[in-house]
Design a binder for these strands. Structure first.
Lengths: 237, 237
DNA sequence: ACTCGTCTGTGCGTTGACGCACATACTGCA
DNA sequence: TGCAGTATGTGCGTCAACGCACAGACGAGT
C-alpha cells in the first residue's frame, strides 16, 4: 500500500514540514507513504540504500551488530528526523542496520531524487545538515550514557526517547528486544521494568507496554535525555 | 606564533590536501598555522566557535562533561579531520568540549570564512560532509565499545586511534588524563597499562608513553577499531 | 482442552569495575 | 639536599551487571 503524498500528510514529518513550499512541491510527487511492520529492516550494515525515509508514526532504530551477534543501539529516528543521511553526506552506506522499532507509517523517496534535491542547496539542504548535527548529539550522548549510567537510567532515557516519537502512549516491544537495543541482558530489563511498574510509571504485559506517568520517568532519567532534547529543539524547533 | 600557510604545509592536513587547487588558493591566505599546548581548550560546550581547526601534528579530543564533573570522550580528531563541524552543519555550537590531547600544530581559519567556502559547494563542501560521516562512525563505535567492551580493549583502541594521528611513537599523557578520556577510573588504566607494558607493547614512565609494538596492540583490540579505520579509509582515503 | 512457543520472573555464583586508602617513586625547585 | 607536588602501584570491600538455569504465565492454534 503506497500512495503519493499530500501536503497535509507530509507535515506530519517535522523535517518535511519545515522546508519551503517550492521544495515541498518538488518532493511531494516522489514521496510515498508506506506502512512498516515491527522488525522490518530498512537497510543492512554496509548495504546501499535505495530509499531515504521520513517517518511519521513509525520509529526506526539504528543498531550496530557485533561480529559475535550482540547488538547496541546508537540512535533512534521518528517523526523528528530521517533515515539515510549517508545518501547526502556522500558515503552512500553506513556500518549499521536500520530496523523498525515501532510499527507505523513513513514517507520514502528514492535516494537519487533525495540527493538531487539536497544538491540544489536551500532550506532543505540546511535542514538536512542541522538534523544530522542533532543526530550526532544523540549518538554522542548515547556513548556517554553507555559509559557512565545504570541500566535503570538508560531504560528511562530509552522510554522517553521512544515516547517523544510515538503517536500514543502504547509501545509494542518485548523486554528481549529492548535489551538488544540497549545492549544489556534481558533480565536486566526485567528488573528495571518491574521497578518502573511498581512506581506506577508504566504498565507492561507481554510485549505491550503503556507509559502511564511521563513525569515519573523524567524523575528517574539521567541528564542525557534532556541534553539531547534541548539540542533537538535548538537545532530544529 | 602564527603565520600564513604555504601549500606544502597545508598538505599535512589530509582534508586540505584533498581539495581542489582553486579552493586551496582561496583558503591559504586565511589559514594560520599555530602551536597548541597539551590541555588547551579550543571551545567549551555550547560556546560559539571563533575558528575551525585543521590539525596537523596536534590531536584534539572531543569530551562531554557531566554535571557532576565526570567526563567521557566521544571522538578524537587529528591530521585526518577537523574541529568545528557545527560551523557548517548550521548549529554553530555543540554540547561538548574540544581539548588538546597531544600538543602539536594545527591550522585555524575564521569561522565565517570557513562557512563561506563551504557554502560555495564543490569538493571542499563534499569533503567536509564525508568527514562528518566518518566522525559519526567514530562516535557510534565509541558508543558501542563503551557498552560492550572491557577497559583493556578500550585502552588498546584509544592508543591505536592516537597512534594513527601522532607524528611519532611518543605520547605525553598521564594515566589520569587517559582515564578521564575513557570515562573510567585512573586505577583501571594503571592495571590495563601494566598488562600492555608486561606484554612489551608499550613503555610508560610518568606521563611519557611510547608505543613499542603496534601489532601487539592490534592483537588486543576489539573489532571497533578496525570498523572505524576502514570507514575512514573508504570515505576519505 | 491441550500443547507449544514465547514472554516474564527469580535465584545464584561470578566478574569487572568502582571507591577509597595508602604506599611508593620520580621531578622540579628552593 | 630536602621538600612539595605529582604520578603510579596495590590492596581491600562493594556493587552492578553478567551468564546460566529454570519456573511460571500467557496466547495462539489445533
Amino acid at each position: 500500500m503506497a500512495s503519493t503524498a499530500t501536503q497535509e500528510e507530509a507535515s506530519q514529518s517535522h523535517l518535511l514540514a519545515g522546508i519551503s513550499e517550492e521544495e515541498l512541491a518538488r518532493l511531494l510527487p516522489n514521496l510515498q507513504l508506506v506502512s512498516l511492520p515491527l522488525g522490518q529492516v530498512l537497510y543492512e550494515s554496509g548495504e546501499k540504500m535505495d530509499y531515504v525515509y521520513f517517518p511519521t508514526t513509525a520509529i526506526i532504530s539504528l543498531l550496530y551488530i557485533m561480529e559475535n551477534g550482540s547488538t547496541a543501539e546508537i540512535g533512534v529516528v521518528g517523526k523528528d528526523g530521517m533515515v539515510g543521511i549517508a545518501i547526502f553526506m556522500g558515503g552512500d552506506t553506513t556500518p549499521n542496520r536500520a530496523v523498525v522499532q515501532s510499527a507505523g507509517k513513513t514517507f520514502k523517496i528514492k535516494s537519487a531524487l533525495m540527493k538531487d534535491e539536497f544538491t540544489r542547496g536551500g532550506r532543505f539542504h540546511n535542514l538536512c545538515l542541522r538534523y544530522t548535527q542533532a543526530l550526532i548529539t544523540q549518538i554522542s550522548q548515547t556513548a556517554v550514557c553507555n559509559r557512565l549510567h545504570s541500566v535503570d537510567q538508560q531504560l528511562c532515557r530509552w522510554l522517553l526517547l521512544s515516547h517523544d516519537r510515538l503517536p500514543s502512549d502504547r509501545l509494542i516491544m518485548t523486554q528481549d528486544l529492548i535489551a538488544n537495543m540497549l545492549g544489556v541482558r534481558r533480565e536486566g530489563i526485567t528488573h528495571a521494568a518491574k521497578r518502573l511498574q511498581k512506581a506506577g510509571y508504566i504498565s507492561y504485559v507481554r510485549g505491550d507496554m503503556t507509559i502511564l506517568d511521563r513525569a515519573g520517568l523524567e524523575s528517574g532519567v539521567c541528564e542525557c535525555y534532556q541534553v539531547v532534547r534541548t539540542e533537538y529543539d535548538r537545532l530544529l524547533g
